[in-house]
Write a protein that binds this DNA or RNA. Sequence first.
DNA 1: CTGAAAGCGCTAACAA
DNA 2: TTGTTAGCGCTTTCAG
Lengths: 354, 354
Amino acid sequence: MGYLKEDEEMSVTIKDIAKAAGVSLATVSRVLNRSGYVKETTREKVHKAIKQLNYTPSAIARSLSTNKTNTIGVIIPEINNPFFGEVIKGITQIADAHQLNIILCDTDESKEKELKALKLLSEQRIEGILMTPTYGDACYSSEFLNTLENLGIPIILMDGHIKYANFSGVFIDHIKGACDGVEALIKAGHKKIAIINGLLDSRPAKERLIGYKKALAMHHIPLDEKYIYDGEYNHESAYEMTKDILGLEDMPTAIFVSNNMAMLGCVRALNEQKLSIPEDMAVLGFDKIDTLNIIGMNISFINGPTTKMGKIGMKMLIESLEKEKDVQMRELKQITLIPELQLKGSEKMVKRDR
Amino acid sequence: MGYLKEDEEMSVTIKDIAKAAGVSLATVSRVLNRSGYVKETTREKVHKAIKQLNYTPSAIARSLSTNKTNTIGVIIPEINNPFFGEVIKGITQIADAHQLNIILCDTDESKEKELKALKLLSEQRIEGILMTPTYGDACYSSEFLNTLENLGIPIILMDGHIKYANFSGVFIDHIKGACDGVEALIKAGHKKIAIINGLLDSRPAKERLIGYKKALAMHHIPLDEKYIYDGEYNHESAYEMTKDILGLEDMPTAIFVSNNMAMLGCVRALNEQKLSIPEDMAVLGFDKIDTLNIIGMNISFINGPTTKMGKIGMKMLIESLEKEKDVQMRELKQITLIPELQLKGSEKMVKRDR
DNA sequence: CTGAAAGCGCTAACAA
DNA sequence: TTGTTAGCGCTTTCAG
């Protein structure tokens, strides 16, 4: 009874276009893909039909037919961590330029979800994966490893290692970063340098400690165990440790806080005691917190590259996608990025009278 | 010559499984989808074949056949902004629970990319879109509006309005948020309250100013134009404005900084002049910056909900996906979230001797 | 330059 | 319970 609306509901297909333009399916497909020769006038006819019928090609059908999806998967542990926000920014920038879609999976730091994500992406027939495995050397289930190996598509890791398996990826040289940073402190005259570190079951914490020790050794400064603090990588823990340090008999002149969240706790403790940086205590951090310097704290940082890591990872993935076409060979390629030192004066030794 | 590796390269299909298990395609499909009756023994045979051949169903083929993709698109202006990181967290949590995939598009604040993203998603035959349009009331091209309308799938907006169009979405009540916050200042005794605001071509800035004015009016405090500062929503601009404010003849006792980036500039200016919060100046912000309070600044904030907005948006989208099945009706539903007041003492009027 | 037809991998009637 | 078969929308030989 009512009026029938011109129904575009049952989505229009290439067939409708063909009919409307008075040509065959193949021809429409050709103008869609600019493949093969098509007479200019027919091309126009087709385009007109496309406009009129408001046609949008189906990537699904195309994928099935061509066996290509132009989609890659990104798996990360926590999307709400600004660190990964920047990494993804880098990824999207490159992906965009190459017309690749991104399916995002947040694993919430759970190995289980990581596995699920892998399977899901695999079903979607994505062409490659970019992932940061959740931290910790937690043992990997054989199912996980199997899934990974049977995926049959390139996987690029970003700053993480998967035990028992060798994958290509972009990694951050935590050792060198920490070493360079601590060395800057030493060169500024510091000899008593404390470190607020994370638990040693995480690779970054382990390596940053190594870097710290290495710098001391290189400059013949004896290692003093009382300056080494291990705790959780969070601000509460660092707050307590900093208070401890400030109560030390033989107080250090500098603190190397090897994690960004921990840095906040350290700053809080210093603030509470009205100590200023670097006048009263030099402070060096790992992974910057922009806000601190913007409000004028001038803390020195060792910065792991974020956006850059995403960009490079994505480029590596694209490269291996292309390679795979030619030869049936998978090559291992690992790129290590060295963190950048951002010295804001806080590494300086201002008061030498201690 | 060489050994042939057992080649699983040409990916295994449902057909291979059928052959291996000695059943028909349909049967395999049935056990895959747990649809229809299958004898227990055949089910087992099929499962064994699936394991042995390491079969992964193709979501692509399934999508083509069922006309469902279980995928939704998320379009946001800047993935590297922590605000959106949290929004996405909320989205993924709900999506996860409903087995929905997410295709992520970052528009880089560009209307052009926004349009591209829309088209791309449309080709992928996603089932719905969750988006935050880039800020500003910049005029929308008719092409954009057309695309949006012709999409034929539900779109849920998150804290943004698209001019000339009415879409469902989750919005933030900037007016109420600002009003509540400023009111808290007034109740604490403040009468001279400055506002550092953004440019008025952005809806949030406009509305937050309205909220500010409203609070003053409600408490019969005359509006003083010299306390109103409009600038860019960034820290440099806010830094300068704060310095201006601090040089004012009749200095205010409180500052309402209506944006999180701007807050940083304000804090920097206060720090430089060794003014403490709230002893020397009460400070209220819009959208918290966690780091500031962690390091002990105790700034009061009006917090727009982030993760929550993502969750609610996703739920709304799922709801409209389900509704759409039943009736061919699209209903408009707009939910407004009220920002939460996080009073950390900085709204207090500590020195009344000014 | 254009058309016909055979798939891509899977689902969903319809039969058996 | 199970098998047959006709698509889903598009690409891509192979002929014309």
